[in-house]
Amino acid sequence: MAEETVVEKTWCGILNRLPGSRRGEPAVIEAAYTEPRLRALFPFPSHGALTFHRNTEFPWSNDLPFIVGDVRACTVYAPLRASKRVLGESLTPQEAAALVVAHLPDDCGPAFEGPWPHRGTLTD
Rank of each mutant, 00 (worst) to 15 (best):
F66Y: 15
F66L: 09
G69F: 02
S61E: 11
R81P: 00
A73D: 03
V68R: 15
R81Q: 14
D63P: 00
S61C: 02
I67S: 01
F66M: 04
S61H: 04
Y77M: 15
D70Y: 13
V68A: 05
F58P: 00
D70H: 15
E89V: 15
P93G: 01
A78N: 13
L64T: 05
E57L: 10
R81C: 00
C74M: 04
T92Y: 03
K84G: 09
F58D: 09
P79L: 11
S83A: 13
P79R: 15
F66T: 11
D63W: 02
I67E: 12
S83W: 10
P65K: 03
E57V: 07
S83M: 14
S90N: 15
D70F: 12
A78W: 06
E57M: 07
N62K: 14
S90V: 01
L87Q: 10
E89F: 09
L80F: 13
S61F: 02
T75Y: 03
L91F: 05
F58I: 07
V68H: 13
G69Q: 07
A73N: 04
S90P: 00
W60S: 05
N62A: 14
S83I: 14
P59D: 00
S90A: 11
L64I: 11
R72I: 01
S90L: 05
D63L: 01
S90H: 13
A82N: 05
A78D: 00
A78G: 08
R72W: 01
A78R: 13
V68N: 07
N62F: 10
D70A: 08
G88R: 12
V86Q: 13
K84V: 15
P65D: 07
D63T: 01
A73F: 11
K84M: 13
L87T: 13
F58W: 12
P65V: 07
E89I: 10
Y77H: 14
K84I: 14
R72P: 03
T75L: 06
A73G: 08
L80V: 09
F66P: 06
L91P: 09
G69T: 07
P93V: 11
N62I: 07
V68F: 10
Y77V: 05
S61W: 04
A82C: 11
D63A: 01
I67L: 10
V76G: 03
T56H: 00
L64R: 02
P93K: 12
R85Y: 02
V76K: 03
S90K: 14
T56N: 06
G69C: 09
D70V: 03
A82S: 12
V86I: 15
G69S: 04
A82K: 15
V71N: 08
D70L: 12
N62M: 10
W60C: 01
V68S: 09
T92H: 02
T92M: 05
V76H: 07
V76Y: 01
A82T: 01
L91S: 03
F58E: 10
V76M: 03
L91C: 09
